[in-house]
Amino acid sequence: MKEINFHKYLEEIKAKFEGWDFSSIHDTGRIQSSLLSWSYGSKVVAAMQDATTVLDMGTGGGEFLSLLNGYFPPTIYATEGYKPNVPIAKKKLEPLGVSVYEVVDDEQLPFSDQHFDLIINRHESYSVKELKRIVKPNGIFLTQQVGGWDCKEINEWFGTSVNPEFKEWKLLSALEMFPVNEWEIVEQKEEFPIQRFYDLGAVIYYLKAIPWQVPDFSIKKYEDALYRLYLHIGKIGYFDVTQSRFFLKVKCK
């Protein structure tokens, strides 16, 4: 029976994933995270109430932004850099009045100077120089970011290194990118919550959805490590990893 269950979990690699929708593992409780001391959604809702023109950077499939439509300002835009997500985001957001743009270069956003009084960004890259160009004086940039050592225990388990491109990404390095003569730091926080996987299939689904965690991940290459993890979860009941999250709110001077 154990062998049958193990191979059934391996089939999770075939599960459909589109947009930025983790409901099949989050909403079912197959993966859970400990609490942060802040809520990105609540920060956004509060900031939107004082805004007239808003940009959501890296909207994914529009899953998060669409849930806040009751707080939308008069004018709202969204960008997305992953091409397959763009039509998904358009389908979800354009009926709500959101203009969706595909963006492939953080340094060249398709907006005029001083266009936005609020720019929000959840787990997306950005160019501070370009933010400065498109935000209005006294405009707000509000972001929640994933640190470079996020879920490092996954890499340790599979014997792979943390991506060197991201490993130095943390709150301190993000703060250093905002010149004090151009930006005011309004809020900043960094925390390291625990993310718990309750079954092997949830781990496989996660690695398929976030391919940069283990870039060369495949069932064939890592089957032995996956079987060891299957036994570990069977014995302990879960697999814990450490997330890295930071929140930053800055005002343009």
Rank of each mutant, 00 (worst) to 15 (best):
K249I: 08
K8P: 04
L142G: 09
A15W: 10
R122Y: 04
E18K: 12
V86E: 00
I140A: 02
H123V: 04
D56I: 09
I219M: 08
V241M: 02
R245D: 03
S23L: 07
P211Q: 01
F6S: 10
F111I: 04
P211N: 03
E130N: 08
A46Y: 05
S37N: 14
V186N: 10
Y40V: 11
A46C: 06
V162H: 03
V104T: 15
T242E: 09
K91N: 14
K43A: 12
D56G: 09
N155P: 04
V128S: 05
Y77F: 15
P193D: 00
A202K: 02
P164V: 11
I25E: 06
H26W: 09
V86W: 00
A174Q: 14
G159H: 00
P73K: 10
D56S: 10
G60L: 01
Q195V: 12
K253F: 05
V186H: 09
F166D: 10
Q32E: 15
L229E: 01
N5T: 12
G58W: 01
G159T: 07
V45G: 01
E191N: 08
K235C: 04
H123R: 12
Y82A: 02
S34Y: 07
D150W: 13
D106L: 02
Y198R: 05
S244E: 15
I76P: 04
K136E: 14
F22H: 11
T59W: 01
V203T: 03
E12F: 15
N85C: 11
V86M: 07
E130Y: 08
Y205T: 04
F197W: 07
V162S: 13
K170V: 06
D117P: 07
S24G: 10
N85K: 06
E124T: 06
G97M: 07
K14Q: 15
S37T: 13
F178C: 11
E18H: 14
S42M: 14
N181F: 07
Y77M: 05
Y230E: 03
S42C: 10
K170T: 10
K2Y: 13
E156N: 11
T242I: 14
